[in-house]
Amino acid sequence: MFKGVLRKGSIVLASTVLAFTLAACGNNGGNNTGNGAAEGGNNTGTEAVKDLSGEIRIDGSSTVFPITQAVAEEFMNINNGVNVTVSEGGTSTGFKKIINGEIDIADASRKVKDEEVADLKAKNEEVVEMPVALDGITVVINKENTWATEMTVEELKMIWQKDSKVKLWSDVRPDWPKEEIKLFGPGTSSGTFEYFTEEINGTKNESTTNYTPSEDDNVLVTGVAGEKNSLGYFGFAYYEENADKLTAVAIKETADAAAVAPSVETIGDGSYKPLSRPIFIYPLKSALAKPHIAEFVKYLNGEEGQALVEEVGYIKLSAEDYKKNLDMVK
């Protein structure tokens, strides 16, 4: 099994698999998973595919990155003629790169946009939308913060909305400390940023600029862990990996609603609202015609890939959802 360490991003679950194909784009920068070397293996849960060779280029969401990286390492271990490079430049960057023909698969923590589909179509290309896991965007505070362990969506909006006037914790609730809030969050090319701003602020991509942004979730973890008065957000998998350093905020949809903390159970059953979401891969339809790429995607959606989804801290989909993905490869 995968022996790597979760380095970036978070996990997202996809609740339904869409059978239609869509367009996508690329991304920049990243991490090379390296080449494995082993023999034999079971790529798709049936028989091993012999003599596979070629390159597979993946870029995009830092949230999906741990999944595709783990799958890449295991896939290369049983297919030593295949080299898979996985990078994490952010969802929007991934879509840009796939549009430009720089990668074969885009990792995404949001759905492809109509304009991205159109850009691909203009190049006689399209992508196949495949949800691969469920994730819950987790709002986190420093371990020394004992006052903000529960917050409403409206309170989060007060802090994160564009042109927010909130500076101190006491600006949110008068009985909270008169201390400046230090904010940490994903950069603007992140699908997590887009999803969070739409669900919390009501308008996607509109946010206060008074925060420290990073596409590297480890930077966000370090920032919140190192500052008592901090607040941040990123994927659930990264919270779970760092639960000894951070506290997850329980979210109340309304002031009268019960506070719900993120967990495998609450994300899986959808009760962690409104920040539970699916995450995706978008392979080029033309790339799936290449045997080594088709087998990689089958491996990711097969029993081995599903086990890796859970191993790196994400919530896997139903067996039927993965079957739909596999049917699209065929």
Score class of each variant (00 low, 15 high):
Ile200His: 02
Arg173Gly: 13
Lys178Gln: 06
Thr188Tyr: 03
Glu194Phe: 01
Val128Ala: 11
Leu183Gly: 05
Glu154Thr: 04
Phe193Gln: 01
Gly187Lys: 00
Lys182Trp: 01
Glu150Cys: 09
Ser207Gln: 09
Ala108Arg: 04
Gly191Ala: 00
Pro131Lys: 03
Val128Ile: 15
Glu180Ser: 13
Lys157Gly: 11
Thr188Glu: 08
Phe184Gln: 00
Glu144Ala: 13
Gly202Leu: 00
Glu126Gln: 15
Ile159His: 01
Thr152Met: 07
Glu194His: 08
Val219Ile: 04
Asn201Ile: 02
Thr152Cys: 05
Glu150Phe: 06
Thr222Asp: 12
Gly136Met: 08
Thr149His: 03
Leu168Lys: 06
Phe236Ile: 15
Ala148Thr: 11
Met158Gly: 12
Ala118Leu: 10
Gly232Phe: 04
Lys228Cys: 07
Gly223Arg: 06
Lys111Glu: 13
Pro174His: 06
Ser189Arg: 00
Lys162Ser: 09
Lys162Val: 09
Ser164Met: 01
Gly223Met: 05
Ser170Glu: 12
Pro174Cys: 07
Gly202Glu: 01
Glu150His: 06
Ile159Asp: 00
Ser170His: 07
Glu227Asn: 11
Ser190Tyr: 01
Asn201Asp: 08
Phe236His: 11
Glu144Ser: 12
Gly223Tyr: 05
Glu215Asp: 12
Ser207Ala: 14
Thr138Ala: 07
Val166Cys: 07
Lys143Ile: 15
Met151Lys: 00
Ala118Val: 12
Lys178Ser: 05
Gly191Glu: 04
Lys204Val: 12
Leu134Trp: 08
Thr188Leu: 09
Val221Phe: 03
Pro213Arg: 01
Val117Leu: 15
Thr212Glu: 13
Met130Asn: 05
Asp217Trp: 00
Gly185Asp: 01
Gly226Asn: 06
Ser230Glu: 08
Val153Ser: 07
Val219Leu: 03
Glu126Pro: 14
Leu120Gln: 15
Phe236Cys: 13
Pro174Arg: 07
Asn145Gly: 14
Ile159Thr: 02
Trp160Cys: 11
Thr192Asn: 04
Ile141Val: 15
Lys121Gln: 15
Glu179Gln: 14
Gly232Lys: 03
Ile141Trp: 03
Thr203Glu: 10
Ala225Asn: 02
Val139Ala: 07
Ala106Ile: 10
Thr203Pro: 05
Lys162Trp: 06
Asn205Asp: 14
Trp147Lys: 13
Lys121His: 13
Gly191Asn: 02
Glu129Thr: 14
Phe234Ile: 10
Lys113Asp: 13
Glu154Ala: 10
Trp169Ile: 09
Gly136Ser: 06
Thr208Val: 01
Glu179Asp: 15
Val112Tyr: 10
Thr203Ala: 03
Asp175Tyr: 03
